[in-house]
Nucleic acid binder design. Structure first.
Length: 569
RNA sequence: UGUCCUGUGGUGUAAUUGGCAACACGUCUGACUCUGAAUCAGAAGAGUCCAGGUUCGACCCCUGGCAGGACAACCA
């Protein structure tokens, strides 16, 4: 895995200062902790698709291991059979692999550790550090107190060890109903840290698990399973997001009581992106309620959505690298993500001319029966890819926006009496505008100067701008999906009273239109990336059929003209 | 009226035994241009949450505030 298109990255890596996690690891190595070994892991729960926030975590974990010549594991945190599915397991593996990370033979599941976890639970019981509690979930909550009020002991707290052991084994055998009993760690009901108030270790769930089937009816909770899984895999640095900071004393408590390998938990601030939601729950809601076409909808911040949108793994890794790692809450400007793709796509995307909002242009002094081929570059950033022929004829289509009947001073595209260069072809001059009864422009009539054909010795007369075009009789018709941000507000959760994030959904986040493309896309297949010159980057969608290509707009090009308009408002 | 975490340009991240704040995105100029892209050159923008203290000197150390966030799921 390289960042070939981002040359500054690898070069400056040495000089770049370390983030706080790298500093911790550096110190650990220096002090000889874990014999200098570094082993990280990415532990997704298979209850949804991975999103760009996960990408940050994946790049962090795998990047750390790479940097310190260590190892990384992929581990599914599958301790809740109610919400987890194989569909998610599969998508997660695909996404991590696509991002460019290879876990080799280190693919694990927390569910593989259920037996060990259960043995350790018995160990806690025998040490008098865990007990079976028969309070209802409401009663347990009530006994828990609040952050500012201490809790009360459960009446089952001082059960004898034998009884606890017997009860727990009967829980495992399936003798009880869900919610009837739980196993709790015996710590401190008056701890200022809520997580230390006799947290639940095992609960009864009579449900089919995607991997263990019906073997188990008791399942470990996150707090109990996660740290122990880290320990079993001898993870040295267990990196997670900030909300688990308050769990760390409990994480350490289990490891200490069980006397097992001491993994160390380190927390960092999760990624937030402007105009984007990152909550799996809310993303699921968008999917279920049909606001998007699914988890892979190109407007979704999911890895699979971004992939379908036309993002490259390189661009996402570059982005993850740029945003940094720290502990303070942050909101990254979505413009940085867009900058990341543009930077990569500029270098790799094949150039093609396409007109999305066409208006007919007739070159009146061009012979009616003639057509020719002009010479175009495949990608100016990679001249070695060679050149391509583009058909040209008397009738072409140009972008509506590239013509103005009564242009302001700053507009230097086509207008009556003005000259403009047709990219790769001739300089033309607008002579006449034809309108229909409604006053709409139906045709622009121009003359061309045959001596200005690109490549000719006298072709380089200065004109104010160059526009793209498509020969009307040769145009390939395609479907184009123009995406815009899914939410109108920078913080989608900022909604009016009684409304939620969905009230900020952008009604125009998807516009479907017909595109007319010149040659160059004949052999395109899904995920192929193009730049439609002067418009943006586009990617072939998987919904394409042999007869009809569908293009997704990944991002527009930066557009100084559009920005001028924005500033005037 | 708890515990823990965090506070540096618009945004994000730096400043590594304390030496008057750097980089990226964004913004704005200008050059170049057969993509109003890319590229190149440049500019504006923070005096580091506040108040004390230690020190020749503090973003960095100490004290006290203030602000924001996390924690009361048999979710992870």
């Amino acid at each position: 895995m390289t960042n070939g298109n981002f040359p500054d990255k690898g070069k400056k890596e040495e000089e770049r200062s370390l983030n706080f996690i790298e500093q911790i690891i550096t110190e650990d190595i220096k002090s000889g902790k874990n014999e200098g070994r570094v082993h990280t892991r990415f532990p997704p729960e298979p209850n949804g698709y991975l999103h760009i926030g996960h990408a940050k975590s994946i790049c962090l974990n795998y990047g750390l291991a790479n940097k310190f010549k260590g190892l990384y594991n992929l581990r599914f945190d599958d301790t809740n059979p109610l919400t987890e599915e194989v569909e998610y397991v599969d998508s997660i593996m695909e996404d991590v692999r696509w991002l460019g990370f290879d876990w080799e033979d280190r693919l694990y599941y927390a569910s593989d550790y259920f037996e060990q976890l259960c043995q350790w639970a018995e160990k806690l019981i025998m040490k008098g550090k865990a007990y079976v509690c028969e309070l209802s979930s409401e009663e347990i909550a009530a006994h828990k107190g609040s952050p500012t009020r201490p809790g009360k002991d459960s009446p089952f707290r001082n059960r004898p060890v034998d009884e606890n052991l017997d009860q727990f084994r009967r829980m495992r055998k399936g003798e009880f109903k869900e919610g009837e009993k739980v196993l709790r760690a015996k710590i401190d009901m008056s701890s200022p840290n809520m997580h230390m108030r006799d947290p639940i270790v095992y609960r009864i769930i009579h449900a089919h698990h995607h991997r263990t089937g019906d073997k188990w009816c008791i399942y470990p909770t996150y707090d109990y399973a996660h740290g122990q899984s880290d320990s079993i895999e001898e993870i040295t640095h267990s990196i997670c997001t900030l909300e688990f900071e308050v769990h760390r004393p409990l994480y350490d408590w289990f490891i200490r009581e069980l006397e097992i390998f001491p993994s160390r938990q380190i927390e960092f601030a999760r990624l937030n992106l402007s105009y984007t939601i990152m909550s799996k729950r809310k993303l699921l809601q968008l999917v279920r309620e049909g606001h998007v076409s699914g988890w892979t909808d190109p407007r979704m911040p999911t890895i699979s959505g971004l992939r379908r949108r036309g993002y490259t793994p390189e661009s996402i890794r570059f982005f993850a690298d740029r945003i940094g790692v720290a502990k303070r809450d942050n909101v990254i400007d979505v413009a940085l993500l867009e900058h990341s793709v543009r930077e990569d796509l500029n270098k790799i995307a094949t150039r093609v001319m396409a007109v999305l909002h066409p208006v007919k242009l007739v070159i009146t002094n061009y012979p009616e029966d003639k057509s020719e081929e002009v010479d175009a570059v495949v990608n100016p950033e990679m001249p070695e890819l060679g050149r391509r022929k583009v058909p040209f004829s008397r009738e072409i289509l140009i972008e509506k926006d590239d013509f103005m009947e009564d242009p302001p001073k700053k507009f230097f595209r086509l207008a009556p009496g003005r000259e403009v260069r047709l990219k790769y072809a001739y300089i033309i001059k607008c002579e006449e505008v034809v309108k229909n009864d409604a006053g709409e422009i139906t045709e622009i009539r121009c003359t061309y100067d045959p001596l200005t054909r690109s490549g000719l010795p006298d072709a380089n007369r200065k004109v104010k701008s160059t526009i793209h075009w498509v020969s009307a009789p040769h145009a390939n018709e395609v479907e184009v999906r123009l995406f815009d941000r899914l939410f109108l507000k920078e913080d989608p959760d900022e909604a009016e009273e009684g409304k939620d994030f969905k009230s900020n959904l952008n009604p125009d986040s998807l516009k479907v239109t017909k595109g007319h493309v010149s040659s160059g896309i004949e052999n395109a297949s899904p995920l192929d990336k193009f730049q439609f010159e002067r418009l943006g980057y586009f990617c072939v969608d998987e919904d394409s059929t042999p007869g009809r290509l569908i293009f997704n707009r990944t991002v527009t090009l930066r557009d100084a003209w559009a920005r001028m308009g924005k500033n005037q408002l």
